[in-house]
């Protein structure tokens, strides 16, 4: 496993960085830590002499940034054109109801996190959902519910064992 870069090292890789380095820095931090924590945004603010409100504003403008750590099961629902036509909206509704979280959020037990993506390049299989790298093709709300329940069961047996 490659070693995870700390925010400090990332900032050191950008000496004399100005505000034009903000987005690359945030991307690297998200890559290293999986999300942008308050701590890292504050550190970036201090290094770039930018208010954290501005950094938060920039980061929330883009869909790629998340502000909560990913869950054990990271659910990505495709909302690209083909998936939309094939009913991915209903699939997403189902997931938000079942997990009680909105896109970008993580469940309190840190088991699930949800992300909406624009296209995963698998339009022939629409609507597509990806959980931890595994693709699920032509999902219906029913099918998706089963998949999530399976993840939950796996998680529970894992805890009990």
């Amino acid at each position: 496993m490659p070693s995870v870069k700390s925010v400090e090292t990332i900032l050191m890789d950008h000496p004399d960085a100005g505000r034009d380095h903000l987005i690359p820095i945030l991307q690297e931090i998200q890559e290293a830590e999986g999300y942008l924590s308050q701590e890292s945004i504050t550190k970036v603010g201090r290094a770039l002499e930018m208010p954290s409100s501005k950094i938060f504003g920039v980061a929330t403008f883009f869909n790629m940034f998340r502000f909560q750590a990913k869950g054990k099961y990271h659910v990505m629902v495709c909302r690209g054109t083909a998936c939309h036509v094939k009913g991915s909206g209903r699939a997403l509704d189902m997931v938000t109801k079942a997990l009680k979280i909105q896109p970008g959020e993580t469940t309190r037990d840190k088991a699930f996190s949800l992300e909406v993506v624009a296209c995963m390049g698998a339009c022939g299989l629409a609507p597509v959902v990806n959980i931890n790298g595994q693709f699920y093709a032509k999902v219906s709300p029913m099918k998706l519910q089963r998949i999530i329940e399976e993840c939950r069961e796996k998680e529970q047996t894992h805890v009990h064992a």
Binding site: Q38, P51, S53, I55, F56, G57, T60, F62, F67
Partner: peptide
């Protein structure tokens, strides 16, 4: 001071503090 800024984008955009917390804990 920059206690507030635009958060999010398009029809979902709003004005808020860093991490959308209360004004009382902002700058």
């Amino acid at each position: 001071v920059s206690a507030i800024d635009f958060i999010a984008r398009g029809s979902k955009a709003f004005i808020g503090t860093a991490f959308n917390q209360g004004l009382n804990v902002s700058s």
